[in-house]
Design a protein around this nucleic acid. Structure first.
Length: 108
DNA sequence: CCACTGACTACTT
DNA sequence: CAAGTAGCCAGTG
């Protein structure tokens, strides 16, 4: 049984457009739980495949990929770059350019 | 119900 | 800037 928060979060993540990203924290806020960032990561980890979520479009608040090398890092970076996202020298994504700007999201 | 775990974050050193 | 810390809360056993 999934919580309302979890379902809402999945819905939001599914709607991240190509070439844009969301941070764990932002996704949590949009799903209605400002402190639910860790649940977002759990979601992605456990059901990104089952529910066909664009898990690679979610990164941490510093604009970096949270996965470790050989644990999915390379794959995520490749997927993002294939959508046109450019990484800075220090391997960070410029959130000013790529953060999905959504002021409201309507899902009951 | 309790304990433990995290692909997190904001704040302090 | 890097490293440490306290708070966070759904899932799991």
């Amino acid at each position: 049984m999934l919580t309302r928060f979890t379902r809402k979060a999945m819905n939001i993540i599914r709607n991240i457009p190509e070439g844009k990203v969301l941070t764990y924290g932002r996704a949590a806020v949009l799903a209605g739980k400002p402190n639910g960032a860790r649940q977002i990561s759990r979601l992605l980890h456990s059901m990104s495949e089952k529910y066909d979520l664009p898990w690679h479009r979610v990164i941490n608040s510093k604009g970096k990929i949270s996965l470790k090398p050989s644990q999915g890092y390379e794959l995520q970076k490749a997927l993002l770059e294939s959508e046109g996202i450019r990484f800075s020298k220090n391997d960070t994504i410029d959130l000013r350019l790529y953060l999905w700007q959504v002021s409201f999201f309507n899902t009951p």
